[in-house]
């Protein structure tokens, strides 16, 4: 049974780690919100220039989101692969 206990504890720690990794997604959310919010405030100040910068905004969102995706990846790896 000691082996089982060790496995259980390891599993528990694994899940805790996965949950902790998920907090990284909050950072990505803040980042994406920051990007879009600044885009919007800029667009409201100068609506004529907004259309040309939509692609740039999406690129920015993609880069900001990439790190959140990494934390998601870490969580999944902890839960299923490790």
């Amino acid at each position: 049974m000691e082996l089982d206990a060790a496995t259980l504890i390891a599993d528990g720690i694994k899940y805790a780690g996965a949950g902790l990794a998920c907090t990284g997604m909050g950072g990505a959310a803040v980042g994406v919100g920051h990007v879009v919010g600044n885009y919007l405030s800029g667009a409201l100040r100068n609506p004529s220039a907004a259309a040309g910068q939509t692609a740039t905004m999406f690129i920015g969102i993609a880069f900001a989101e990439a790190l959140g995706i990494f934390s998601f990846l870490v969580a999944l790896l902890l839960m299923f692969a490790v």
Binding site: A62, E65, A66, I69, F70, F72, L73, L76
Partner: peptide, 13 residues
Amino acid sequence: VSHSVRLAGNMMA
């Protein structure tokens, strides 16, 4: 890595 995991992760999640 980010290019592929972003797409797969979004869809899967």
